[in-house]
């Protein structure tokens, strides 16, 4: 019973990402990029700029982790085969006659397969980031978590930054700060793999990789099938948030009043009450809906 299972997970954890999973990752990332308004016209007008954005979409996480660890950010260019692969996929997606690839991709099972395979690469990236950071800092588990997270989900930060510099996107408070579902999941995975690496979590690495990947793929596919963007974490997060940060809000109106009396920083402190009541209102309106 024990050994076949172990063999299975071990074999799974030794799967090479290179040809197929990487292709799925590039495909999903670049299709997401193509859905952004204006991406296609940019590709026709200025192919090089579009290509560069595509590379950032594909290799963003690695670039961010290189920046954080003071390694050359263009290191990803050294991996010729991956660059060629990503470039050819970019070319096919944007310039294929009759948009054949896009039409094929809009077929749901293909989408599901590609998204599932992309989630597999995420696990591998997190593990790679954690072990890489561990080679620099033996006891720096905060660094390990951060690098794992950067590898797995840092791409969005890089692409957002690129858009900011281009001027096509202005940081609205909410869009920038709200952690998307992938980044939350990646953070969770990064924490787990770090604790596994520092032996605080009594589970072997290949088992953890297997379970985490299954979890990722399952949630992703259910999300795509039910077409919701935020699932599975909401109740848990709510409870945690209430426990850690929420016990304050019950007291907040009284406290804030006292505070505005006692010192002059009324403008900054009176906001939270309004905010809290806003939130309550929102919740109420949600319930009534």
């Amino acid at each position: 019973m024990e050994s076949p299972w172990d063999e299975l997970t071990l074999a799974f954890s030794r799967t090479s990402m290179f040809p197929f999973f990487d292709i799925a990752h590039y495909l999903v990332s670049l299709m997401a990029m193509k859905r952004q308004p204006g991406a296609v016209t940019v590709a026709w007008k200025n192919p090089f700029s579009s290509w560069f954005t595509a590379m950032l979409h594909c290799f963003g996480g690695g670039i961010l982790s290189c920046i954080l660890l003071a390694e050359p950010p263009v290191r990803f260019l050294a991996n010729n085969t991956n660059i060629l692969l990503a470039s050819s996929i970019w070319y096919i997606i944007f310039f294929c006659p009759c948009d054949l690839v896009c039409q094929a991709y809009s077929f749901l099972p293909v989408q599901l397969l590609a998204a599932g395979m992309k989630e597999v690469t995420r696990t591998w990236k997190i593990v790679g980031g954690v072990t890489h950071a561990n080679s620099y800092y033996k006891n720096g588990w905060i660094v390990m978590i951060a690098i794992g997270w950067a590898r797995g989900a840092g791409g969005t930060i890089i692409t957002n930054f690129e858009q900011l510099i281009k001027g096509t996107w202005k940081p609205e408070a909410d869009e920038w700060l709200k952690m998307s579902y992938p980044s939350k999941v990646t953070l969770l995975g990064s924490v787990m793999f770090t604790f596994q690496h520092t032996k605080h979590l009594a589970i072997s690495k290949h088992n953890l990789m297997f379970f985490y990947t299954v979890f990722l793929v399952a949630t992703k596919i259910t999300m795509m099938l039910t077409e919701t963007s935020t699932v599975s974490f909401a109740p848990f997060e709510d409870a945690l948030g209430r426990m850690l940060f929420g016990c304050h809000q019950r007291f907040s109106p009284r406290v804030k009043k006292n505070e505005t009396k006692s010192n002059g920083t009324g403008s900054s402190t009176s906001k939270p009450t309004a905010d809290a009541s806003d939130k309550l209102k929102k919740k109420h309106s949600k319930k009534t809906e």
């Binding site: 408070a173 952690m179 948030g241 939270p272």
Partner: peptide
């Protein structure tokens, strides 16, 4: 940081940020 306008609101909405 807490003196900055909007920081308290931010901490309620986006603790990570």
């Amino acid at each position: 940081l807490k003196y900055e306008p909007g920081a308290v609101e931010l901490s309620r909405r986006h603790p990570v940020a």
